[in-house]
Simulated scan of single mutants.
Amino acid sequence: MPEGHSVHRIARQFERNFVGKPMLASSPQGRFAEGAAVLNGREAVSVQAVGKQMFLEAEGDVWLRVHLGLYGAWDFAGEIVVDPTIASANGRMGQTNQRGTALEAPILDTAGENSLSSIGAPRRTRVHVRMSEQTKGLSPDDSEWPPPIVGQVRLRLMTDITAADLRGPTACVLQTPEEMLASVAKLGPDPLVGDATENEERFVRAVKKRQTAIALLLMDQAVVSGIGNVYRAEMLFRQQLNPHTPGRDVPEDIVRELWLDWVRLLAVGVETGQMMTMDGLSGDAYRAAMANRDDRHWVYHRAGLPCRVCGSEIALEEIGARKLYWCPRCQA
């Protein structure tokens, strides 16, 4: 499932390429035909991400709410305006390291996690990218315009130069301003939305009053927004916390450290496009980690392999219908 960093990156793509422009909207699949008809011809006014959901405002007090769920993704085509400080000459988002120093040569994730043209659930995208002049040294190609429809596209949004195709979302609905605010109110705090101090206190209160296992609370979007299976496992390991500990039994200082860690990890994810959860890497180790997720996580996807710290076998179990990876010794 796309986690919070991906949705924030999607929102930034819409901010750069759609906000302030009239949109053509259609539903090639047909399942969102009525909603697309409402959006068609309206100007995009604003966009924001909260956790795993994106809210796109169109003129006339109409909001589009999209939750990608397990399989959803946005594919972008045409002229895509990207931040020139992180643009790379191969059509992918570049990245900086965790110390903020730009890398000389961008490192691409083998699974396409930091792809510019497709953000969301992993898939092989067939859309074409015609980079903006803001990405120095690139020139437009001769891709077909508008791009051909590929697969089951729930919603296509287009300006005169950019297209965004939505496939496989859990939710794609239109809302009034009141409905949009009600949707946001149901979500837990997001480090990139609202007041930092208030967000931390909301998280601490929500965790400390519950008997539910902390592993389940971190995945509860009413407790905290944006954390999915990868970040959940990694954050628990980074705090050496047993995933079965009831929330109210987790020491308050550890709860606060969990929140601050989420603040840090989300910022890295938005900046790089990758869920980098190992600190202190440099040189070949850092490049390997940026290229392959199996080299940038402590426990996620490492069932049966030795713990990177103690050598014990990483355990895999199911909790809340999702896989949980953890070290029974480090997190005893």
Rank of each mutant, 00 (worst) to 15 (best):
E3G: 00
F32E: 08
I107N: 02
D160N: 10
H128R: 14
V193M: 05
I119F: 04
R156V: 00
P106I: 12
V224N: 01
R256K: 12
H244C: 10
G120A: 03
T101M: 14
V204E: 02
K52T: 04
D261W: 02
Y71N: 13
N229L: 00
P306L: 04
M131T: 05
E313Y: 08
F76E: 03
E133C: 09
H8T: 02
S225A: 15
V127I: 07
M275D: 08
R210P: 03
D75V: 04
L174T: 11
A303K: 08
S312P: 05
P246W: 09
W262M: 05
Q211Y: 06
L116I: 00
V255A: 11
A285V: 02
G304R: 07
V255Q: 04
G4K: 05
G304H: 00
P328C: 10
G41S: 09
A73W: 10
V82A: 03
A44C: 07
I161T: 15
K209D: 07
L155T: 09
F237E: 00
M23N: 09
V309K: 15
A222I: 04
T110K: 15
G188H: 08
P169D: 01
T277C: 06
G78I: 00
R65D: 05
Q175K: 14
C327R: 02
V223F: 01
A121V: 00
G4L: 06
E133W: 11
I107E: 12
H8E: 11
C172H: 08
Q274T: 13
T101Y: 08
R293V: 14
A285H: 10
H8N: 06
G60P: 03
V127E: 13
D195Y: 01
G226A: 01
I314V: 15
G194D: 04
R156I: 00
R248D: 02
P28M: 00
R167Q: 14
H67D: 13
A164D: 08
N40H: 15
E313D: 09
S183M: 06
T197Q: 13
A332C: 04
D279Q: 13
L157P: 03
M275P: 03
R31C: 13
